[in-house]
């Protein structure tokens, strides 16, 4: 999983819209990971297609779409977290 997808999924544990995801990702990563609008839009479409997130129904006349992680997305995120923990654990054990 890319860093971008990982942070997008984390940002969508609660409902959030595009700009909110950008801000949350920047904040969590201490401004290290920045998601530009075009890149984020493509990533969101891709995650929707995979079924890891879904677009919430919006009011009429509003184009501001909100997204939320799906059950499948949460499962994928947990598997990724375990993988990352393994990486960290082994790195720490051998480098300390």
């Amino acid at each position: 999983m890319t860093e971008a997808s990982y942070y997008i999924l984390l940002s969508l544990l609660g409902p959030n819209h595009g700009y909110g995801i950008m801000q949350k990702t920047a904040q969590m990563s201490g401004e290290r990971v920045s998601l530009a609008a075009g890149t984020l839009y493509g990533a969101l479409q891709n995650l929707v297609e995979k079924g890891w997130i879904s677009a919430l129904k919006t009011e009429k006349n509003s184009r501001k779409k909100e997204y939320l992680i799906t059950e499948l997305g949460e499962r994928v995120l947990r598997i990724e977290l375990e993988r990352l923990q393994e990486l960290v654990k082994n790195g720490e054990a051998l480098l300390s």
Partner: peptide, 15 residues
């Protein structure tokens, strides 16, 4: 601040 439309290699290539 910095203004980009694409922030990673994959999306730049796609453009």
């Amino acid at each position: 601040g910095e203004f980009e439309i694409f922030s990673d290699k994959a999306s730049l290539i796609e453009h």
